Computed example of a mutant assay.
Amino acid sequence: MNRRRKIYEGKAKVLYEGPEPGTLIQHFKDDATAGNGAKHEVIDGKGVLNNRISEFVFSKLNTLGIPTHFVRRINMREQLIREVEIIPIEVVVRNVAAGSLCKRLGLESGTQLPRSIIEFYYKDDALNDPMVSEEHITAFGWATPQELDDIMALAVRVNDFLTGLFMGVGIQLVDFKIECGRLFEGDMMRIVLADEISPDNCRLWDVKTRNKLDKDRFREDLGGLVDAYREVAQRLGILVEAENALTTGPRLVQ
Rank of each mutant, 00 (worst) to 15 (best):
K6D: 05
I81T: 15
L222A: 02
D200K: 11
T247Y: 00
L154D: 03
K212M: 07
K103F: 12
A126M: 06
K6C: 11
G141L: 03
I137P: 11
I178F: 15
V57C: 05
F58M: 15
E108S: 11
S109N: 09
I53L: 01
E231S: 11
L204I: 10
N75F: 08
T63S: 14
I178C: 02
F28V: 01
K208T: 14
H136R: 05
R3K: 15
K11V: 00
L127Y: 08
L162M: 09
E231P: 05
G110C: 07
L173Q: 15
A32H: 01
E20Y: 09
I89H: 14
H27R: 12
R251F: 15
L222C: 01
T111E: 04
N51G: 11
R219G: 08
E243D: 13
L107E: 10
V84A: 14
C180V: 15
R52Q: 07
S133L: 03
I25N: 06
L15K: 04
R3D: 13
I238N: 02
I25Q: 09
L101G: 09
H136T: 13
G65E: 12
M189H: 07
A32G: 02
N244V: 10
P145D: 07
R94G: 14
L173R: 14
P88G: 09
E134A: 13
P114S: 12
A97V: 03
T33N: 04
G186Q: 06
V91Q: 06
R77T: 14
G224C: 02
G168M: 07
A32L: 02
S54P: 07
I117W: 09
A245T: 15
H27L: 12
P21E: 15
D31I: 07
L127R: 15
G249N: 03
T144H: 05
G22E: 09
R52I: 11
Y229L: 01
A194D: 06
T209G: 05
T68R: 09
H27N: 06
G106L: 11
N95T: 06
D44L: 05
V253N: 10
T33V: 05
